[in-house]
Amino acid sequence: MLTWLGRQTLCAITEIGDFSLFTGKSFCCAAKTKGLAKRVARAVHEQGTICLPVILIVGVFTGLVLGLQGYHVLSRFGSQGLLGTLVSLSLVREMAPVLAALMLIGQAGSAFAAELGIQRNTEQIVALETMGVDSLGYLVTPRLLAALVVFPIQTALFVILGICGGGLSGSLLLGVDSGVYWSAVHRAVEAGDLSECFIKSAIFGLLAMSTCAYQGFHADRNSSAIGARAVSACTTRAVVLSSILVLVADYVISSFFV
């Protein structure tokens, strides 16, 4: 039991070290990669376009549900006027960065891990290396840099749509005065809340996409699955691990801001 525990701990430490090196190298080779701006622009377009419909739908419905639940809880204390505060702060400080990150992992992250896994399987990554092309710089760096832009933008969009959704359910369906709702939103959200929101989303973006990249890039390391199964296994691992990492990071970052 003790041997097994020790072996697992050593494996975990090695993996964390390897992952950190992988992410560090991916950023370091940005300076050497040719045509990086074009590839980053393409990655921003891909990640943004793929995820936009999901962010729109989930953002609106999260706001609608928050408005509905918040109204019924606040009405117990006769504080329906604080609905705007509850919806906006919940979204800005917590729900928008986390939910947007999870949606982006499900859409862009899984696609990225699968793409890299297939490229590893079909020797495209090895081919790049034999040509003298830095495979990390060419394949991974643009996506990581794009994530630093896309995650905060999508989170901002999520916040706006969520607050509108909360207003929709609170004002139009449940009778809260829209002036009261919007003035509560205006008063509640401060610069510190917004900076927490954007810092979280950028860190989540970096963590999620680098985890997905790491899993896809090393799809051949999994000895229990090869071929198409290795790709599906690495994609699943990428989504699960990056979702867990986002939630852990959320707790750590929140504890600094609270």
Binding site: K34, T122, Q124, Y138
Partner: peptide, 21 residues
């Protein structure tokens, strides 16, 4: 297996090593 880049056209495949190296 040829290891061609499946998301690039024939011309882009051939141009890639020149662009990058």
């Amino acid at each position: 297996s040829n290891a061609l880049f499946d998301s690039l056209t024939a011309l882009e495949n051939v141009a890639l090593p020149l662009e990058q190296t």
